[in-house]
Amino acid sequence: MASRSPALAWMLAAVVVAAGVIPILIPSMATLVVLILAKGIVVLGIIILLQAGQVSFGHAMFFAAGSYTAGFWGKYLGVGDLMTYLVVGPVVATLLGLLVGLFVVRYREIFFGMLNLAFSMVLWSLLEKMFHLTNGADGMRVPRPTVFGMTFSPDNFQYVLLYLTLAIAIAATFAVQRFLESPTGNMLRAIKSNETRLEYLGVSARRILLIGYVISAGLGGIGGVLVAVAQQIATPEFAYWTKSGEFVFIAILGGVGNALGAFAGSAVFELVRFYASAQLANSWQLILGVVLITIILFAPNGLIGLWKRQRAARDES
C-alpha cells in the first residue's frame, strides 16, 4: 500500500505511454482504450470501499447515473458539451451516493453488498420501465458532444476523448492514492481491521465509510459519462447487477492494494473480452471465469500483487 517506489512510477509511465500511443498506431483500439480507462476509474471507487473490507454489488447505479446524465441532457436539453457532462454527471452520481450511502453505511459485509445490489436494481427497473422518460430497454442515445464548445469529426473526437480520459484517469489515480494515504483513507482500512477500536478513538466509522462511499460514487459517475460518450448510448444494462459484478471482478483481477490495479485489471478484462468474444462468441465468459479462478488461486493479491511479489523475489536474489 501507499507505494511510492520508483518502479511503480515507471510502470505508471509505461501504462500511460501504451494507452497514449497504441491507439495512434492502431486507430481501431482507441475506443477500447477509452473503455479500459473509464472502467478503471469506476474500479478505483470499488478499491476505496474494499479498503474498508466492504464489497458493493450495486456500484453500477452510480456508473448509470453518470451515463444517463449525458443521455438525459442529449434528449431534453440538446447536444451538450463533454465538459458539462463531466461536471454534472459526477455531481448527480455523488448526490445519489450520499443519499444511498446514508442507508448502506450502517451495514457491513454481505448486508452492505446486498443492500447496494437492491438499490441498483431499483434504479435498473426505473430506467427500464419509465420508457416515456428513458426510452426503456432501448436506452438513450448520447450524441457526440462538443468539447469546450468545439465540434470535432468522429475520427478526431475519438482521440480527443481518449486523451481527455487518459488525463482524468491519471489525475484520479493520484488523487485516490493520496486519499488512501490520508488519515481518512487509513481510517477506512482501520474499519476493516478493527472497527471497535476506531469508535474508541472517538471516530465515527459510519462517517468515514460515508466519505469513502461518496467519493467512490463520484468516480462511478465519471466513468459512466465517459463510457456513455464513447459508446454513444446509455442503456438500463449499465445499472444491472452483472455490471456491478464486472467492476468487482476487475478490482479483484487487478489487485486491491494499489490504485494502479484498477487499470491493470480493466485492461486484462477488456482485452480478454474483446479477443475471446471474437473467437468464441458465446463462451467468452468462460474464459474470463478461468482467468479469475487462476488469479484467485495463484495470485490472491491480483495482477499488481503478482508483479510486486516478483520484484521482491528478484530484489532478494
Partner: peptide
C-alpha cells in the same frame, strides 16, 4: 490514526 481521531483531522489530501 488515534491522534487524527483525537484532533478530528480527517483531511483528505495530507498524508497520515
Amino acid at each position: 490514526i488515534a491522534a487524527a481521531g483525537h484532533s478530528g483531522r480527517t483531511t483528505l489530501m495530507r498524508s497520515l
